[in-house]
Simulated scan of single mutants.
Amino acid sequence: MSAAAAPMRLDERIARHRAELSPQERRAADTLLENLDDLATYRAAELADLAGVSKATMSRLFRSLGFAGFDEVRDHLRTLRSSGLPQRVEGTPDMEALAASEAAHVAAAISQPGIADAVEWIAAADQVLILGWRGSYSVALNLRHQLMQARGHVTVGPVPGQAVGEDISSLGPGSVLVVYGFRRRPRLFGSLLAAAAATGAKVVLIADPTAITHVAHVSLWLECQVETTLAFDSYAAAATLTSVIADGVLSRLGSAAHDRVSRIASAYEEIGEVE
């Protein structure tokens, strides 16, 4: 059975087959688990040395777990990384190359022509709802913070203890929903977008390429790459795109937005909230 045919993670395979392994293979399996975060950066011979077993034992372990060899294990780990699982698969990252890659991702994100539509819709909306989950939530919260400087009636969710349906039910033809949908999205994601679109609201999806299956339900898709050579996804492009959208809304609303900025600054001073 190949790794491609079995989506079960490596650690799950080890747990399932552990009772069938020889003592030497169990020692080798324990070494794989101890080094799981950067396993793909090793060679098979290095892992055998770490475990204190022969290369033949390590090869038998791979076959027992359903892999043809360590190259297939690496492919399996890359597949998991592409789904958003945090782990390093390319060795120690080259920081100069990483910076160049991030810059390219940012440039691609902020050069999309659809940004103008997003800005126009958000500036003119009766209300703006912003949704994000897990890592996406921090970016959603940042957009809410920035838009609130320029206009009112901006909310973010999901709020703890509140169902998302409560937010969606308030949407209508004059509303805009901005959804951050980076990989490892909640299972309700597709049905949520469909329900939001049915309200007549404009739906803006900001997401990485894995969200392409959901594009049919949205008014606009703004793509942001999050994958890097690091173990965790990067939201640098998404954060920059967020600032570009908020800046556009501030500019679009003109004097009304700048008056609001002044009132907020005065409120900060009056209550001593900000240094």
Rank of each mutant, 00 (worst) to 15 (best):
D38Q: 13
R43D: 05
A44R: 11
E46N: 01
E46R: 01
A48H: 13
D49Y: 01
L50D: 00
L50G: 00
S54L: 05
A56I: 12
A56M: 10
A56C: 00
T57P: 07
R60P: 00
R63I: 06
S64E: 04
E72T: 02
V73C: 06
L80N: 09
R81N: 14
S83K: 07
P86V: 11
P86L: 10
R88T: 05
E90K: 10
T92G: 00
M95I: 01
E96S: 04
A100D: 14
S101C: 08
A104K: 08
A104M: 08
Q112P: 12
P113E: 15
P113S: 15
I115E: 13
A116L: 12
A118Y: 08
A118I: 04
V119N: 03
I122H: 02
A124N: 05
A124C: 07
A125D: 05
V128G: 04
I130F: 09
I130S: 02
R134N: 12
S138G: 13
S138Q: 02
S138V: 09
A140M: 03
N142R: 15
L143D: 03
H145D: 14
L147W: 07
L147N: 10
M148K: 10
Q149V: 12
R151N: 05
G152K: 11
G152C: 05
V154E: 03
T155Y: 13
G157Q: 01
G157V: 04
